[in-house]
Design a protein around this nucleic acid. Structure first.
Lengths: 255, 255
DNA sequence: CGGGCGATTGAAAAAGATCAAGAACGGTGG
DNA sequence: CCACCGTTCTTGATCTTTTTCAATCGCCCG
C-alpha cells in the first residue's frame, strides 16, 4: 500500500487555514515543507492515549479521527471528528499532555508533524502563529456547538446538525459531490458523539430517511433536502468559518 | 460606587495564567500595565451580543459571566461560566465576530481590554502570545468537559461536576474557604448550563443536599463531602490545569 | 405591604435508555 | 463462487429519566 504524498494533505490543510487566515507565499511554502511521518491506523485503533505526552500533532491524510473522553464504566463521549486536512490536535502544541484520547474511527492514515517544527514556524512567522492559534479557537467553537446540540437539541436535531456540519467540512476539501459525502462511521460511534444510545440513533436516522431528508449507503451520506435538514438541526454554518455549501442545482442530469 | 482597581483584577488573571505559563518579570509588568475600561452590568444584562464585532476582550472583576448560545425558540445553552480574574473572550482576539453572546448572570463588573493592546503584547512577547494561546486551549478543554457532562452524565452527575469545577476555580482566586464558595446563580441558569430543565435541577440539588454532599444558602455553596461529590461527578481536575483544592482539614474550630 | 422572581412540589406525558432477538452486511477462507 | 463468521443494523417491548404543566410558597426589594 502506498501513502498519499504529504504535500497533498498539507495543501488541504493550507486551503482550510487560508479561508480564515490569509498567508504569504513564503508562509505557505514553509508549511508545505514541514516534516511529516506517515502512520496507518486500523479502524478502532488508538492514536493517542489519554494523558500521553506527545511531541507531534496529527494531520489526517485519509479516514476519520475522533477526540474523545471516556467514563469509568467505559462509555465514551466523542468531542470532535476530523477528516482529511484537519490537524487533529494542534492544541497539543500548547498542552502536550493529551487531555483527551484520539481514536481512528475507520482505517486511517495520518502524518505526524513534530511540535518542534511547528513551534519553530510559529516563532519565525507571527502570521502562522496567529493562524494556528485561530485554528484552535475555531476547533473550540465546533466543540461548543456540539455542547449546544447535546444540551438543547433532541435526537433528530442533533443528528441533523452533525450531518450538516460534516457536509460543509467535507465540501471544503472537495468531498461533497451532488449532495453526497463520505461518512464511514458506525451508529454506535455516532451515538457516542451525540450523547445518545446506538438504538436511538438508529431510530433517528430512520426518521430522517423516512422524511426524505437523507439517504445512506455504504459509508456515504446523501442529503436529499438541505433546507429541511439544516432547519431540523437549526444549523447555522457561520461557526465553521468555511465557504458555504455549493448548491447542487440539478440532481442527475444523466438518466 | 467605586471600582476595584484594575490592578487587583489583572493580578488574579496573572496568577492563573502563571500556573500554566511561567512569565518573566517584564512580561508580568506588561500585563499589569494593560489599559482597562471598567464597565458595570446588571444581572441578566447582555455584555456582548451574538455576532457583534468586538474590539476588546472582557476581564471579569467581580460577578459571574456566561458565554451562551440561543435556540430559535429562546432556549439557551450556556457554554462556560467566568469568575473574577477570567478573561472571558480572549479568543475574540483571533475571532472578532462574536460566535456566541456574553451575559452577566449576576451584577457584574468587567474591564474591557482593547484588542490592540493585547495584540501588541502578544507580538512583543512571544511568551505572552503562547500564554494567551494556551489559555484559549484550556478554555476549550473546559467546554469539552461540559460536553462530556451533557452527553454522558445524568442530572446529578452533571451538577456534581459543575460544582466541583467551580469550587476548584474559585479556590484558585482565594474564594474557596472552609468548603464554601460564592455561586450566585439561579437554578434556571444552572439548567441552561447543564442542558436540563430548572425543575429537574431543583430536584438534583435537593438530592445532593439530602445525601449530605452539599449545602446552599444565599448565593454560597458549601461542599460537605468533597470525596463523594467528586465521585458523583467523576470529576478529575486535571483538565483545569490549576492547583488542587486546599484540604479543609478542620471544619468549624470555633464553636 | 405588595409584587415579582425564584424555589419547590406533585402529577402526567414524552423522550430516550435498556434488554433482547433476528436480519443484513462485509470480509475471509476454502 | 460460496459458506461462514463477526460486526453492525434493525425492530419490538418495557423501563427510566427527564420534561411539561400547574400550583404554591417564600423571600427579597422597593
Amino acid at each position: 500500500m502506498s501513502f498519499a504524498p504529504a504535500t497533498e494533505t498539507f495543501q488541504l490543510f493550507l486551503n482550510k487555514v487560508q479561508v480564515r487566515s490569509p498567508l504569504s507565499a513564503e508562509e505557505q511554502e514553509a508549511v508545505l515543507r514541514l516534516p511529516a511521518r506517515p502512520r496507518q491506523i486500523a479502524a478502532h485503533g488508538e492514536i493517542v492515549r489519554l494523558g500521553e505526552q506527545v511531541s507531534h500533532s496529527c494531520l489526517v491524510a485519509s479516514g476519520l479521527v475522533s477526540r474523545f473522553s471516556q467514563m469509568e464504566d467505559g462509555r465514551r463521549q466523542h468531542i470532535s471528528f476530523h477528516i482529511a486536512g484537519d490537524m487533529v490536535d494542534l492544541y497539543s502544541l500548547m498542552l502536550p499532555a493529551a487531555p483527551s484520547a484520539l481514536v481512528a474511527l475507520t482505517a486511517t492514515t495520518i502524518f505526524e508533524i513534530p511540535h518542534a517544527a511547528l513551534s519553530e514556524l510559529a516563532f519565525r512567522f507571527p502570521a502562522l502563529a496567529a493562524a494556528f492559534w485561530r485554528e484552535c479557537v475555531i476547533d473550540g467553537n465546533i466543540v461548543a456547538q456540539w455542547l449546544v446540540s447535546a444540551g438543547r437539541r433532541d435526537a433528530r436535531g442533533r443528528l441533523a446538525h452533525l450531518l450538516c456540519e460534516m457536509a460543509v467540512r467535507s465540501a471544503q476539501i472537495g468531498k461533497y459531490v451532488d449532495g453526497s459525502f463520505p461518512f464511514p462511521i458506525t451508529q454506535e460511534q455516532i451515538s457516542d458523539a451525540l450523547g445518545l444510545t446506538s438504538v436511538h440513533v438508529n431510530r433517528s436516522i430512520k426518521a430522517l430517511r423516512e422524511e426524505g431528508l437523507i439517504q445512506t449507503s455504504r459509508g456515504m451520506v446523501t442529503i436529499l433536502d438541505w433546507e429541511a435538514l439544516s432547519f431540523a438541526g437549526e444549523f447555522d454554518p457561520a461557526y465553521l468559518h468555511l465557504p458555504p455549501l455549493p448548491r447542487t442545482e440539478v440532481r442527475a442530469v444523466t438518466v
